[in-house]
């Protein structure tokens, strides 16, 4: 009887381990999904400061990101070696390091191993990505950044 229970429990554990390993192996890891070039397409407030103006105007955006590493960034290029190249609208670039934390829901950006910032990776699909972060400046609450994946990075970089 005792052996029978032991066999059943062992079988359950082995089956669960196999299923979870297979599922994790077959599904897309957020680390792989984020690699590529993403263009910012929209900034939104969680709490709307004025009625009917949910989208952040450029001036607000500049103020909010003034002290952040992502200031003026429009194009985010995630490289597989853990580096991220931020390109501004005027063509200036900044090289940082990126890593995912938690269950892949927190994006950590590090500058020269000194400063770091964290963004909530709320959603990542094949062509869309949504980052959230908190700000205390003017727009109280969470700011939502939406990105679209760019396939031809070089061509786009030349354009801007």
């Amino acid at each position: 009887m005792k052996n029978k229970v032991l066999y059943i429990y062992t079988a359950i554990v082995i089956a669960c381990t196999f299923l979870v390993s297979l599922a994790i192996h077959k599904t897309k890891n957020p680390t792989e999904g984020i690699v590529g070039t993403w263009k910012e397409v929209e900034w939104r407030y969680e709490k709307i400061p004025h009625k009917n103006t949910p989208v952040l105007i450029e001036e607000n955006k500049k103020q909010i990101t003034e002290d952040l590493m992502i200031h003026k960034a429009e194009l985010w290029q995630f490289l597989p070696n853990g580096e991220i190249k931020l390109t501004s609208g005027k063509g200036g670039t900044k090289l940082l390091n990126w890593t995912l934390k938690g269950r892949g829901h927190v994006l950590k950006l590090t500058e020269k191993n000194v400063n770091n910032e964290h963004y909530n990776l709320y959603y990542i699909g094949n062509n869309t990505m949504e980052l959230h972060f908190r700000t205390d400046l003017q727009a109280k609450g969470i700011v939502k950044l939406t990105f679209k994946r760019i396939n031809n990075t070089t061509k786009y970089a030349q354009e801007i």
Binding site: V20, A23, I24, T27, K28, N29, R103, G104, H105, I124
Partner: peptide, 16 residues
């Protein structure tokens, strides 16, 4: 609900 199956299995493993 979001359909992030990789994260679903990671969290499931943690609970397990």
């Amino acid at each position: 609900a979001k359909g992030n199956w990789n994260q679903v299995f990671v969290v499931l493993t943690w609970i397990f």
